[in-house]
Write a protein that binds this DNA or RNA. Sequence first.
DNA 1: GATGTCCGTCGATGCGCTTCGTCGATGCGC
DNA 2: GCGCATCGACGAAGCGCATCGACGGACATC
Lengths: 342, 342
Amino acid sequence: MARVPTSKDVARVAGVSQSTVSYVMSGKRPISERTRRLVEDAMEQLLYQPHAGARALASQRTNIIAVVHPVLAGLGVGGILPFIDEIAAGARARDHDVLLVTADEGSAGLRRVSGRALCDAMVVMEVKSRDERAAVAPSLAQPVLFIGLPEEALAQGSPVHCIDFDFEGGARLLVRELVASASQEVVVVGWGPEVVERDVNYVPRFRRAAEAEAAAAGAPLRWLEVSRDSASIRAALDEVGVDGPGRSLPGLLLADNVGETVSALLGRGVRPGRDLDVVALCTDAEAEAMPVPVTAVSQQPRDVSRHAVEWLFRLLDDPSAPGEVRLVPATLARRQSVRPAP
Amino acid sequence: MARVPTSKDVARVAGVSQSTVSYVMSGKRPISERTRRLVEDAMEQLLYQPHAGARALASQRTNIIAVVHPVLAGLGVGGILPFIDEIAAGARARDHDVLLVTADEGSAGLRRVSGRALCDAMVVMEVKSRDERAAVAPSLAQPVLFIGLPEEALAQGSPVHCIDFDFEGGARLLVRELVASASQEVVVVGWGPEVVERDVNYVPRFRRAAEAEAAAAGAPLRWLEVSRDSASIRAALDEVGVDGPGRSLPGLLLADNVGETVSALLGRGVRPGRDLDVVALCTDAEAEAMPVPVTAVSQQPRDVSRHAVEWLFRLLDDPSAPGEVRLVPATLARRQSVRPAP
DNA sequence: GATGTCCGTCGATGCGCTTCGTCGATGCGC
DNA sequence: GCGCATCGACGAAGCGCATCGACGGACATC
């Protein structure tokens, strides 16, 4: 069996020393054009690939980014795949790989991955409001970036780095859109108890902002926790009296179950944009794929991830940067689910 | 700044040699109870964690499983998160971690991850019918397991290891269920062109088996390619004349867009299980969350993944095992979307 | 009490790479 | 023509761990 070639083999074939091979790869010292050519030819000929473990051992750099992802993925907003996908792409573009860590290990997972030197930096997804990991992160040797806002991060001078979509701003935009139309009342079809119980940080953030905005506008707001099955959705619509066109219907803010709820409305003969106003928090693709395209705020997972990766690599260069919270601004895309203002 | 403790530090604190520390961790040589205690106490005191890179270098084992996942995840059946999730869980249960490799690197990605010794084994997801990666896999130093069946795997004596859900069997069960009911004709709401173009291997497998089964039963079968937006779904229903209850309606086999299509049917006043027969390929959770619970075959991503991980670790012990194709059997769960046989 | 066996521990070596100090060769100024 | 700076390449020393051979002591055997 042919041995895997090492940099020593490359050096021998190229007729140079092994350290020269290393400098060709890293570019950390000047190499003459002639030598570089020799070495690169030898690499190609041998199909050389540097050994990641050896490199990590010698250089203290793994070229790996760890991503801590929720276990019961699929609950919550939109799904986490676009996040991961975008992070992976950003990492690869910078010659890094992605290590997936499941969140069920909790803060012990962070300690493990950090202590074993499995990565150079970490991204933690689906942060909880009270998240033990936020307390552990600053003590680790690698920079950690949270997607979401744990309580710890809100204190002045907190060393935690956080980024997230501006759920507060999104909530305000959506409520404002409803009250600006004919809606006298706002009903939020919110996340189900199974999501709320998980203490996902953006649920209360969204809720508080929505309620504050409604209060400021003098519009009553009802918040419903609706699970992901059609029975719950039907029950919710019954509860707020959306059982057919006719009487004055409340404005609906769909924070979750967007597609299902719109279908349920149409099934009752109630048409968004004609019989009532509907706005949603969802991706643009979802909003446009519906029978009635829905006026919506997109939480833009890809934008958040892209920004996150960029920031993370900056933190790698300057690990001592102070804690900071960054929000990706919300924008509203108007479609056909809201009636023109009276 | 406190240095990260090494096994040498542990040895010093415990008053033993460094090799003894190593043997305590690996258990590859007998250690007295007393010494083990000393070493474990020292580890705890120092919060010692072995350096993954160093370990990989010395032992030729990374304790990492690479998962190659599709880029445009979310297309296709059900989503790939349950797969990844389950693989990650299985890997962690065996003290391994998961490295995420995006499929857009193609076979070069396999070569890179293999050659750099970034993992001990690999799982490749969303295999194409003609998949260059199947040809590369056998030449790698690490075992590779495909989830899905590339053409190469079907040849006698192929060295490729494959596992997948039995889409053929599932297709047969679903078609049989429809023809056993009152349905004179079968209409398949299949994957949209954007999925078909990606040459995902299970689409033709499912289709061929469905067509063969229908032919055997003497029932005409129409196959529609339907995209993931409500306009396409409506167009498809129009095309096959499902515009309201009344005349004799075909049996519907929903291979994709299950929820949306059922909603669309109800919106037209057509009720599965009353006005026509509907069966679907989807998860049990989806099938049950619908307004009318749907008789369905679940592709059981978690079963497939669990089996895959188990097999993969067996391959790690015996890398010379011959190529093999394994299918996870399909089962049909009857619900309320099919009328009783006449 | 001498011999043999086995158990538990130690020291040394090497995995493949990065990096630091060094040194020869080359080109320049005077 | 000589000295000096500069560029480019080299050699050696680790990085932290696993592993192999060796070895010392405890115990049993005759």
